[in-house]
Design a binder for these strands. Structure first.
Length: 414
RNA sequence: GUGGGCGUAGCUCAGCUGGUUAGAGCACCUGGUUGUGGCCCAGGAGGCCGUGGGUUCAAGUCCCAUCGCUCACCCCA
């Protein structure tokens, strides 16, 4: 085969597109109900946008980005995530001035150069929301509720919400040093990457899966010890508001989230039937990012959800092509013009019309109509053309009647 | 980047310890009906057995390499 899709990318074929459209429709509809507006940003951006926001030491930036140098010398990158671009757009267009509370959502493809596996591709799709302007817990909860709502609407079972707070700036600094202080005596027992992280991003060590590191971590200081009073009450409010909405959650002290910009609330929806990549949706609050990227200090919160992963855990409802469709069987060159005209007229009246253009036999065309599941077939042959009539066959009952051509549109439009 | 599994028809797969023209089911096409679908019957088309090299009288089958897919690690949606 000469050409095929690049490793980690996939064609979405017609037979599966309706699942995507179903998912997209739910996202548009529910985000709409929550009063969010869609935003679309370019698929590539200045590389600096990501290294600055996501963090140079993260895996995403250090080894997973598709980056290149533009002819004019700029450094560009296919977006590996969408929060930073949305924040960039928010700042660039002064969206905060137009409305004190900006509620945005997006759907689109992202790119990360990782080794593909189940639920992980190099081009993948996320939808997500970002809200700018509110520092209060009810905003975190609204965002979580929105995600929860979408999963519920999609009928996704076996999904659970993990929740944590990694505190505000001061808290993180304090906790960071406390963690370094605690871990340094164990430094020689740590893995190579963890040793590196001790300097770059010690919080990530909490996420470790190595058994003996997990043991060490067990006795590590808890981030909750470093919370400020405000952090604590914020987090408590988030929890009680969630409970008030009957959204179940479990606390997870080690839910740190990889990206650097998070503050306070972090959360993740995980699915049980997804294999190793069980995170379906991740998000949290990021009160410093707007300022970090050059905007006015603006509190913000949001999430991103992986659409391929959702599709993997989504029970597909059988495709019911509700479209009222008919198959226009045309026999012989002599009727081609008339057939095209009839098809046009019916289509203009909102009817789905299939029509053979391979000059196939009556039998073949009927077979095709049957395959397509059309309920009615209209037969136009030379005989019918001569009489200005057509045969209308009911493919379910097998009955057939003859009607005048000029009555055809009326017959179907009802 | 590292490790495991797998590459035979459009799809799902069979092909025993190497042996002659490489098979099945589904899907597709044609005919059984001069212009009547589905079900049934008959027939047909469709394969450099991923690629390259090696062993052998003989390779889809064994060995090596390579590419691809896939799962897992790392990390993440």
């Amino acid at each position: 085969m000469a050409y095929r899709t690049i490793k980690g990318t996939h064609d979405i074929l017609p037979e599966e597109i309706h699942r995507w459209q179903q998912l997209e429709n739910v996202v548009h509809s529910i985000a709409g109900h929550y009063g969010y507006n869609e935003i679309r940003t370019p698929v590539f951006e200045d590389t600096g946008l990501f290294s600055k926001s996501v963090g140079k030491d993260t895996d995403i930036v250090s080894k997973e980005m598709y980056s290149w140098e533009d002819r004019s010398g700029g450094h560009l990158t296919l977006r590996p995530e969408l929060t930073a671009p949305v924040v960039r757009s928010f700042i660039q267009h002064n969206l905060g001035v137009r409305s004190p509370l900006q509620k945005l959502y997006y759907i689109g493809p992202l790119f990360r150069r990782e080794r593909p596996q189940k639920g992980r591709q190099r081009q993948f799709h996320q939808f997500g929301v970002e809200v700018f302007g509110s520092e209060h817990p009810e905003q975190d909860v609204e965002v979580i509720a929105l995600a929860h709502h979408i999963f519920k609407e999609l009928g996704i079972k076996d999904i659970s919400l993990k929740l944590n707070s990694i505190g505000s700036g001061d808290c993180r600094r304090n906790y960071r040093s406390a963690l370094i202080k605690f871990l340094t005596p164990f430094k020689d027992d740590l893995s190579e990457t963890s040793q590196k992280r001790l300097e770059t991003n010690p919080l990530r060590i909490l996420d470790t899966k190595i058994p003996h590191e997990k043991e060490i971590i067990q006795n590590a200081p808890s981030i909750s010890d470093s919370w400020t009073d405000e952090d604590k009450s914020h987090f408590e409010s988030v929890q009680s508001l969630l409970s008030g909405l009957n959204i179940p959650y479990e606390l997870d002290e080690h839910l740190v989230r990889g990206l650097n910009y998070y503050t306070r609330t972090t959360f993740e929806f995980v699915s049980e039937d997804l294999g190793a990549q069980d995170a379906v949706c991740g998000g949290g609050r990021y009160d410093n990012l707007v300022e970090m990227l050059g905007g006015r200090p603006t509190p913000a919160t949001g999430f991103a959800a992986g659409m391929e992963r959702i599709l993997l855990s989504m029970v597909t409802s059988e495709q019911t092509d509700g479209r009222e469709s008919i198959y226009l069987i045309n026999l012989g060159k002599a009727v081609t013009m008339k057939a095209l005209q009839m098809a046009q007229e019916l289509r203009s009246n909102g009817i789905t019309v299939y029509m053979d253009t391979k000059r196939r036999s009556l039998k073949a065309q009927l077979r095709e109509a049957n395959r397509l599941g059309t309920k009615k077939a209209v037969i136009l042959g030379e005989e019918e053309l001569k009489n200005n009539r057509v045969q209308v066959k009911d493919l379910l009952k097998g009955e057939q009647e003859e009607i005048a051509m000029d009555q055809l549109a009326k017959y179907f439009i009802v």
